[in-house]
Design a protein around this nucleic acid. Structure first.
Lengths: 113, 113
DNA sequence: CGGTATCCTTGACGATACTG
DNA sequence: CAGTATCGTCAAGGATACCG
């Protein structure tokens, strides 16, 4: 295997890892919602068109396992749950920004096909 | 709907569009393979571990429809097909670079959990 | 309020064989 | 050589109801 091939496989792996963590239909969207100030489960559901609570629940767990959000139980009555972005999570801004920009431009391009 | 909410929904849409075009397991990987000099179907298959020809075939069509690659029929005997990246496709470097970087760092972070 | 449980649909992806 | 056809699997995601 050449040097170039090794580098290529490393690239592949890194990109596929990224896709696993923040890919899929909802993950970045959820992060943006929390970033926008939604902290509670039902607020997040309400802020995202068409997401269901089952899906949100799973995605939140996935994000928590990947250290992107944290879940805090606030001991009131009734108990309140708050989701917040971790410091680390802010680094996905490096991805969300370019993705947003690229997507907007692309749709313009395709629609004029 | 507030100004902020409108912007949020635009962001969501743009990001989901991007995910649709270059998301999934293979798309960026295929682009990188062509970028690396593989032009012909079987070369691309061989360069990407575990991809099947059926999947590659579909993905190539998807990429062509989105103007990211072009397919040229070269009239020799036997006929030769060459896939090349479009000029436009080079813009996904804005995404692949950050994704690679982020993925590498993330795996380091998670493994040390 | 913040979820789970159950059941279901869809589409992505895969294995293998075959073809113009 | 560059695919297509056929069939199959599996996981993501969705609808709806219910629960502590």
């Amino acid at each position: 295997m050449t040097e170039q091939e090794i580098k290529f496989k490393e690239k592949i792996k890194a990109i596929q890892d990224t896709m696993y963590v923040i890919g899929g239909k909802w993950k970045i969207v959820i992060i943006l919602s929390i970033y926008n100030g939604n902290k509670r489960f039902n607020d997040i559901v309400a802020s995202i068109p068409k997401i269901t609570n089952r899906v949100l629940s799973k995605e939140l767990k996935h994000l928590e396992e990947n250290l992107l959000i944290s879940r805090k139980v606030i001991d009131e009555y009734p108990v309140r749950i708050e989701y917040t972005l971790t410091e680390y999570c802010l680094s996905i801004d490096e991805l969300a920004g370019p993705m947003e920009k690229w997507g907007k431009n692309h749709m313009k391009k395709i629609s004029g096909k």
